[in-house]
Simulated assay, not measured.
Amino acid sequence: MFVGHGVAAFALVGAVALSREIDSHRALQLAIVAGLFATLPDIDILYGPLGLLNGVSGVFDATDAFWSTGNVVHRGPTHSLVFAGTAAAAFSLWRRSSAGRVVAATVLVGLSAVATATGGSVAGAVTVLFGIGGLVITQFAARRGLSSGAVLATALVGLVTHPFGDLFTGEPPVFLYPFDVPVVTERVALAADPTLHLLGAFGIELATLWLGLVVYLRLTGRASRPQIDRKAVLGLSYAGAAVALPAPTLEASYQFVFTILAFGVIGATQRQLLSRQLRAVDWPRACATGLGAVTAAALSYLVVYLAVL
Rank of each mutant, 00 (worst) to 15 (best):
T118L: 01
F83C: 08
A150G: 03
V107S: 00
F179G: 06
A87S: 12
V102W: 10
P172C: 15
A104R: 05
H162Q: 07
V107M: 10
V72C: 02
L93N: 02
G200P: 11
A89S: 00
G120A: 02
S148D: 14
V73F: 05
S148M: 07
A191V: 15
E171W: 10
A84I: 10
V184L: 12
S148V: 09
F168K: 02
T116R: 00
P163H: 15
A113Q: 10
R101P: 07
T195H: 05
A105F: 08
E205N: 06
G85F: 07
G200R: 01
A150C: 01
A113P: 03
A207I: 03
V188Y: 12
V73Y: 08
T195K: 07
I132E: 06
V184K: 03
A104C: 13
T78Y: 09
L111T: 07
G70F: 04
N71I: 14
A201Y: 13
L156D: 11
G158W: 10
R101W: 05
D180E: 15
S97W: 04
T78N: 12
D180Y: 06
I132L: 15
S121V: 15
R101A: 09
L81I: 09
F175T: 12
T138F: 13
A104S: 14
V160Q: 01
T127K: 05
V181L: 14
V109Y: 01
L176C: 13
T118F: 08
T195V: 05
S80C: 08
L176E: 14
H79Y: 06
L156M: 14
S147G: 07
A87W: 00
A88D: 09
